[in-house]
């Protein structure tokens, strides 16, 4: 992996924005670095040296990523709320499909055979993942739901 790719990766790790914004930000960073490399090569540097010089001039990826995230994060507040709330709502939907209001399992083997269950289960993961690019929320709520489901199935005494 070149210095440039490593730097871009460091920046992207810090970003948690909507997909379009993140792609645009990364495209702009890449364009700048490619221009710097091209200029250095035209000035007589080897490709490796040009990559290294461009990365050094660009600055620390983590700091840049954090600054970009801080600049953009307020733009999609409503979207962020939906992205955080939707997996939770869908996880609650799954709970209602699997458990009675008192928390007892209502025949989970049968519920797993219902297409509606899997539609909701997959939506809980895939919608936030692809629509909002908020995979941390999606995976966290998904993981939490399944952990609780398994615990309650194995130990029915646990009610949630």
């Amino acid at each position: 992996m070149s210095h440039i790719e490593r730097l871009l990766e460091q920046i992207q790790v810090e970003l948690d924005l909507d997909r379009a914004t993140e792609q645009e930000v990364m495209a702009e960073m890449r364009a700048h670095l490619e221009e710097t490399v091209a200029e250095a090569i035209a000035a007589g540097l080897s490709q490796d040296d040009a990559f290294a010089q461009a990365a050094a001039r660009f600055g620390p990826g983590q700091e840049i990523g954090q600054a970009l995230q801080a600049t953009h994060v307020g733009w999609g507040t409503a979207e962020a709320v939906v992205a955080a709330g939707l997996p939770v709502l869908l996880a609650l939907g799954l709970r209602w499909l699997l458990f009675a209001p008192d928390g007892t399992a209502i025949g989970w083997e049968q519920v797993l055979a219902r297409p509606a269950f899997w539609v909701v289960a997959l939506s809980a993961l895939l919608i936030p993942l692809f629509k909002f690019h908020r995979w941390r929320y999606a995976l966290a709520s998904w993981g939490f739901f399944w952990l609780m489901t398994l615990l309650t199935t194995w130990w029915p005494a646990l009610r949630w």
């Binding site: 920046i11 001039r57 600055g59």
Partner: peptide, 26 residues
């Protein structure tokens, strides 16, 4: 574009404005 802006600022300021280039984008 960002690259041009950074190079122009460096040139005009005689190097005084020597940025970590990536930090100009935020």
């Amino acid at each position: 574009h960002g690259y041009q802006i950074i190079r122009q600022l460096e040139a005009q300021s005689g190097g005084y404005f020597s940025f970590k280039e990536g930090l100009v984008y935020p």
